[in-house]
Amino acid sequence: MPRLELRTEIDSNKEIVFDLSRSIDLHKISTKHTNETAVDGKTSGLIGPNEWVTWRAKHFGIYQKLTSRITEYNRSDFFADEMEKGAFKKFRHEHHFSELNGGTLMTDIFEYDSPFGILGIIADKLFIKKYMTDLLEKRNRTIKEFAESEKWKTVLEKEKYVC
């Protein structure tokens, strides 16, 4: 089972980074290049415990649907989503958040199994692992860009963060 682990340092409040990471709307922005759209379940706003979303996106020239559910949730520190239906045999994406030097360290752990047995293993080595890493890195750059500027206010409810 391939495992990707990405660490992103973000100069922003952990609460903001946590919420941007679970924002359906920000996810759409970060995956614009794949025409990703939320088509069922939670289709906008912040996804939370036991909620699910079905995404429709174009990957490798083919439109696909993938449904994932938030299976674990610990406000501001951690959440995990797991595939219920989709192209992978299975996947689990853990999102970890910790304070670091006045900002946030966001750690993604993404584990997946490709379908098709040995052909899936070969595809992982040839292109899927790199493709998934690039997709997650793009997402994380978008989260960082929004969190480190005032852009986060366009995605999250401003009133929620007023002290």
Rank of each mutant, 00 (worst) to 15 (best):
A38K: 03
Y131T: 14
M106W: 00
E94Q: 14
K65L: 03
L26R: 09
S76I: 08
K32L: 14
R92M: 01
T107F: 01
G45C: 05
H96P: 01
N50K: 07
Y73T: 09
N13C: 14
K58Q: 14
W52V: 02
Q64A: 11
T71F: 00
E15Q: 14
K14Y: 04
A38Q: 02
H96D: 06
E9I: 11
S21H: 11
D25F: 03
L105E: 09
D113G: 10
N101H: 13
G45M: 05
G103A: 09
G117M: 08
E94I: 10
E111A: 11
S30D: 08
G86H: 06
L66R: 06
E36M: 11
S30L: 07
K85A: 15
L100R: 12
R92L: 04
I128C: 10
F18Y: 15
R75V: 06
E84A: 02
S21I: 04
E99P: 02
H93E: 00
F97I: 13
I29Y: 03
F97Q: 09
D81E: 14
K65Y: 03
I47H: 01
S21D: 07
T67W: 01
H33L: 05
I109F: 06
G48M: 07
M132K: 01
K58W: 04
F127E: 12
V53H: 03
I10W: 02
Y73S: 09
G41I: 04
D113I: 10
R69N: 04
T37D: 12
A38N: 02
D124E: 14
D11W: 02
N13M: 06
S30F: 12
A123T: 10
F110M: 08
F79V: 03
T54R: 14
W55T: 12
D25M: 07
P115F: 02
V39H: 06
Q64Y: 10
A80I: 04
K28F: 09
E15A: 15
N13A: 13
G102D: 01
I62G: 01
E51W: 04
M132S: 07
L136D: 08
K129D: 11
A57G: 02
Y63W: 06
L66C: 15
V17C: 05
F91D: 11
A38G: 01
W52K: 10
G61W: 11
D11Y: 06
T31V: 00
D113T: 07
L136K: 09
T133G: 02
E84W: 00
F91V: 13
N50E: 03
K85D: 15
D113F: 02
K90A: 10
I62T: 13
L100C: 09
H27I: 05
W55E: 08
P115V: 12
I109P: 05
K90Q: 05
I10R: 00
D124S: 05
